[in-house]
Design a protein around this nucleic acid. Structure first.
Lengths: 110, 110
DNA sequence: ATTATTACATAAGATTCTTATGTATTCAGT
DNA sequence: ACTGAATACATAAGAATCTTATGTAATAAT
């Protein structure tokens, strides 16, 4: 995203949606996946991602499972039941937000 | 918008786009127009709007014209040349952002 | 008279990011 | 054997953008 304030506020939604589709993922994997999907145009910084994951866990939306792979630790996150509900809610909010932006930025002149 | 973090970062773009379409507007009018367009679903608070207008003016994107109407002062804002360019740029950024969100939230499963 | 609306403004605090920094392991190239 | 890139986590300081609260002041509506 480089210099994009628009991104602000959407990170949680993105993370939760990825976990919804992929069952479980670890932090580094999430950053790779976002870059892959957006062809490198959107980059999630670690300074934003890790605090967000911790916060979602603290809110009871995510659970964690530690794994060692190649002598490196990975923290796999997955949605709790509460997290699944919140994900649906946030996806609807995002949809509504984009509709409103469409109304504002592409006005239908009658 | 009530409780919507997604809104964060998009206010400048909305304001500039409205000024692009309406030539000149005053603060209170901008709040009314946004509510009108979004059927009351998006509400711009004054605490967000006025500092934003001042900032855009300080950056040379807006100019001001004072008017007295019904013994009440109005500050009409309008785009400078620099503001017109920045508006196009921000509208493109918003478009790109929404495309990326679409990629992330509505993945095309092959 | 009192409340709502119009019209501006700012300050404190919350939230979410960026940038910088730190630790530690593995892998690829020289 | 060494160096840098990649993998994988973490946190802290500061920036940017908002919310909430508050203030001023005039007109319109009840």
């Amino acid at each position: 995203m480089q210099n994009n304030q628009l991104f602000k506020g959407s990170l949680s939604t993105i993370v939760l949606k990825l976990l919804k589709d992929n069952k479980k993922m670890y932090g580094y994997q999430i950053t790779r996946e976002v870059e892959k999907i957006t062809a490198g145009e959107m980059v999630i910084t670690e300074g934003a991602l890790y605090p967000t994951l911790h916060k979602l866990e603290a809110r009871g939306l995510l659970s964690v499972e530690m794994k060692m792979v190649n002598n490196r630790r990975r923290k796999y996150y997955f949605l709790t039941e509460k997290g699944k509900k919140e994900t649906m809610s946030l996806l609807n909010e995002m949809k509504t937000f984009i509709q409103h932006m469409d109304l504002l930025l592409n006005p239908k002149l009658i």
